[in-house]
Design a protein around this nucleic acid. Structure first.
Lengths: 190, 190, 190, 190
DNA sequence: TATGAATGAGGGTTCATTCAT
DNA sequence: CATGAATGAACCCTCATTCAT
């Protein structure tokens, strides 16, 4: 019935299963069965199992690269930084299963070559919200800001409360951390 | 030569390989080969592959349970909370490979029954550094504090600087976050 | 651009690959890719993979059948025999890749039904250069004559020397063998 | 019942099937079934399918290396050369299925790394029955001598006659060729 | 304490082939 | 003439696990 969109359907089902059970524990047979096609059909659309996952990452990488590119063209003000955090959270929310998968399968992702690339991107992002030559404490604050949103997004699901409210709280704390780092040493509230 | 310590050696090698390559990608053959014994020998010491990993987690769980028990017997002052964070960081540092493994193989750990248990423990820990009925923002701060140390410990390896200094910075930021949360409602715009 | 010659191009590429890697190790995908068409396109020109190889053999069989037919119409003199060897060598040289393929993939060719046919043809050829009722030694000489050219053609590539000179030497030795067999029993140099 | 000899039995069955159907067309399933064991059992004894075939070749290589070593220690007389041929024929006869396999699966063997090695050995053998600086014709005679026995051994099965008698005839012709080459240029009966 | 030998299930991958368009 | 999409069968291989010794 549906046709021409098989590639997309493979990606969807694969992501769902990868996120649910992990990459290694998800077999191509499983993916194929859920799509009601043969394993061999998958190979018409993707050269290897790894190719499937890599294709998913490419879809993810783009928004982040866009964000980095945008930020690099802006003045490094608090407003820009806040906006970076806001957009990063949006990206996280928009591609939640993928990010969840990435967070929960780092050991796998690491061998994917794209894995390192992602860590680099995260470091780049950190660089964009922090001033140069900051004391270590403030650099940690910036890293913490990103992690708060990153990990928090997933961990907070175990916490009761309105999702929207939780998201806002995460962003607020992250912005707060970056703000404190912005003021630099000596200005932390006594 | 060495004798009676085979069980321990299996655990050591297993942890090392699990942390390096992930649980699913590490085969018993690999572990056995590195120990220069047969796969069958492993089965003398552990009933299944999962048993090996579970045994590792038990070694990890104890210190955290001790920490929780200790904290529950203390007054919930800032000093106590700071000490909780300090001790948690010590636990992290002392069992780094295991924590790293846990962080990078969540998808696997999740199915281990012990996995949920660990998330619960982390939530308990969060509860111990936060006052009841805190506004969402401050609850996020407490979560963030733990995550900062947790993820930071591993991520900071990609950042230049003296390890000791980095550790201290992580702790400081974490304590800072808890402190801010401590002041609780009334000090943040209500 | 080129048109109508696709069938020929398939044969060319197939032969090249079969000769290089063997029949079983050469996939239709490979052939198709090298021609920059789809696998399905091959099926427009050939009903099966085996059909491709059979078509190649047919092109080869003809010259040999012609040679046999010609020889059967000649008096069985030394001149005729020499000419048979000369023409056989010419056929070998002219269709080198195919003969090489045949020599190196006998196990495959054997199941091709055409395979037996070829061995028969070779035996027929042997019959044409040998007198009836020859002693075993002289029959071996005739077989040896054919083999010398056959295998020699390929093996001699590993030997240094001018190709033309090598070819002539092969023919000379083959003719020599047949000549010795011609003289029959009792005449071999004691 | 039988035990401890499984490795040997695998080799036997594998050789039989490889010789009969070719290497690529013989599946491990087939080998396993014929031995009434699981495919996995094969992998206990051999690391890969290729390993099986390589192990077969090693068993073959030894006698030839021995022959080469022996010949190199002898004076290069006609007697020695005759003995080389005789022993080579003995080796051929003793490991017939393997040689047959090798002859009929050259395309496969070629990629086996051991393949080239074998051609080298054959060239070495040729060197041992020929004087240095022989004219091309006589070098061809020496090559022809080896090929006569080599290919002849298998091809002669299609020829009627007592096997023993055929074998003797092959050897006689081979010795004859080497003898003619020995006398060198100018001595061949015109 | 350990090993040698084997198993059953399943993994990812490739192949020749088909057929509607 | 040719392609895009898919299939079914088979392939080699690896794994966790077992058990007699």
């Amino acid at each position: 019935m549906a046709r021409g969109n098989t590639r997309q359907r493979i990606q969807d089902v694969a992501l769902e299963l990868f996120a649910e059970q992990g990459y290694e524990k998800t077999s191509l047979r499983e993916i194929a069965e859920r799509l009601d096609v043969t394993k061999a059909a998958l190979y018409y659309h993707f050269k290897t199992k790894e190719d499937i996952i890599v294709s998913l990452f490419e879809d993810l990488t783009q928004p982040i690269d866009d964000l980095i590119a945008w930020a690099e063209g802006q003045p490094r003000t608090l407003e820009t930084k806040t906006e970076v955090l806001r957009r990063y959270q949006a990206a996280l929310t928009g591609a939640e299963p993928l990010f969840r998968f990435m967070q929960e399968n780092q050991a796998t992702v690491r061998e994917l070559s794209i894995g390192l690339t992602f860590k680099e991107r995260l470091l780049t992002l950190v660089g964009l919200v922090q001033e140069p030559d900051l004391p270590m404490t403030d650099r940690v604050r910036c890293i913490s800001a990103l992690f708060t949103m990153h990990a928090g997004t997933f961990f907070m699901q175990n916490v009761e409360g309105d999702p929207e409210e939780k998201r806002e709280a995460l962003l607020e704390v992250a912005v707060d951390l970056v703000t404190q780092a912005q003021r630099g040493p000596g200005s932390s509230p006594q």
